Simulated assay, not measured.
Amino acid sequence: MDFELSPIQRERYAGIGTAVAERFAEHETCTDPELVRLAWKDAASIGLTGLCLPEEYGGAGLGALDTALGLEAFGRSCSDMGLVFGVAAHLLSCAVTVSEFGTGEARELLAGMAAGDLIAGNAMTEDEAGSDVGRIRTTATRSGEQYLLEGEKSFVSNAPIADVFVTYAVTDPSAGFLGISAFAVPRELDGVVVGPPLPKMGLNGCLAARVRFEGCVVPAHYRLGAEGAGGAIFQQSMAWERGCLFAAYLGLMERQLAECVGRTTDRRQFGRKIAGFQAVSHRIARMRQRLESARLLLYRACWLLEQGRTDVSAIAMAKTAVSEAAVANSLDAMQLFGSAGYLAGAGIEEQLRDCLPTTIFSGTTEIQLELIARETGL
């Protein structure tokens, strides 16, 4: 085993972190679509929208682990986790899917995705279907060289500013899991209706909305993979998302830990620094332990994915460890900052709100535990 990053990896990590810190030094979380798109262009100029996309389309051609390291640096240096999450979701659940399974005109979308000119949204979740892919009700009926798409997706990250939607629909109702197909749907097609932005508790820099397909005619060349392969394609996209996206939260926890150390060494009570109280120092020690434990699991899961060994349990354990550590550490940070952390402006309350949904999106913690149990032989 070798736990050291290579000189190239360290240099790339530091370079991304420095570039992000410079570009987003004065950036504040915003929900104005035009301002959000400008922030995306800044992220794209650093190469964050194309980390693992093929070089021939303008990407960096990185593997899973190096992609995770890039997103970790992004999350460490940018306080707008909504923006970080939106870029990562665009890259991992959408662009990677188009890269691996798209052909012809669908692959022509990749250059725009890598450059950040085309923003993608993953249109999978429905009111009655989340991790249970088999319950989706959106249909795609084939007629010659096109499909008629009908249905509604209930929560699509990036939807208000998205230019293309990677979506899943039933093409053969009698085939169950094998009757689902995947599509890359340009927003410009007639019948794509994007609802207003959804109000959320956190990750406000990532706009989300419902998306309806009303008699939307999609050319067959926008289908991803073979007809009926949508379920398997979705599972592969989740391997990338669960494995790499959560590295951004390692970056957030690293930044948060440094803020807590600074706070507790600067603040004095009862004649001494509060870091000198065991109740405080042990809380910080636990924060670091959670962070480093989660980091090891995530790096291992990404390394396995990079080796072509999609280990479902390794990815699920990493996702669970990172999400639970992010929530626990944010609660600890709130205690360490006290009333100052509860007030808007210090950043701690925003970190907590941004971390809470990690136990829900990309499959809830309960779903991850079921996957781990199943892989354990239960």
Rank of each mutant, 00 (worst) to 15 (best):
L189G: 05
D172A: 15
I284C: 10
A239P: 00
L224A: 06
L352M: 11
G63D: 15
V170G: 04
L297P: 00
A226G: 15
R135E: 07
A258T: 14
A111I: 06
D266V: 04
W240Y: 14
G112L: 14
R187M: 06
L297Y: 02
G82I: 03
K153V: 12
K319G: 08
S131D: 06
V84I: 12
G151Y: 03
A73T: 04
C244S: 06
L371D: 12
S6R: 12
L203W: 02
A316F: 06
A346Q: 06
Y249G: 01
M201R: 10
L118E: 05
D354Y: 13
E350F: 02
A123C: 13
L305N: 05
L178Q: 12
G341F: 05
A294W: 07
R10L: 10
I233C: 05
G243L: 10
A239F: 12
A111Q: 09
A60C: 05
I372V: 15
L331Y: 08
V133M: 08
M317Q: 13
G102V: 10
G144V: 05
L331H: 11
L83T: 03
R272Q: 13
V322H: 01
R135T: 04
R268A: 13
Q146T: 07
C78Y: 04
L53T: 02
R290W: 15
C355M: 03
R283Q: 13
L369N: 06
G15H: 09
G228C: 04
V98G: 00
D172K: 14
R37T: 08
G271C: 04
L371S: 05
V87W: 06
N122R: 09
E55N: 01
A88L: 11
A232W: 01
V261E: 09
E324N: 10
V164A: 01
G102C: 07
F165C: 04
F85E: 02
A162M: 09
Y222A: 00
S339G: 03
E22F: 00
L305I: 06
G262K: 08
E254P: 00
E126K: 07
P54D: 11
P173Q: 08
L298I: 15
C78M: 08
M238A: 02
R295N: 02
E370H: 09
V185S: 02
E72A: 15
R272E: 08
S79W: 07
R142E: 14
P219D: 00
A229V: 10
A39G: 02
F337C: 04
L149G: 01
A328I: 09
V36M: 01
E188I: 11
E22K: 12
T167N: 05
L356M: 15
R137W: 07
V312W: 07
E100S: 09
A208N: 06
T365D: 09
Y222G: 01
K200S: 13
L298D: 09
D32T: 04
R267F: 11
D332G: 03
F213L: 12
G75T: 12
T49F: 02
R272C: 05
A43Q: 02
G228F: 11
G104C: 08
Y13N: 01
Q289T: 12
A248G: 12
G63S: 01
G58A: 07
T49W: 06
A64N: 04
G231H: 03
A106T: 11
T18S: 10
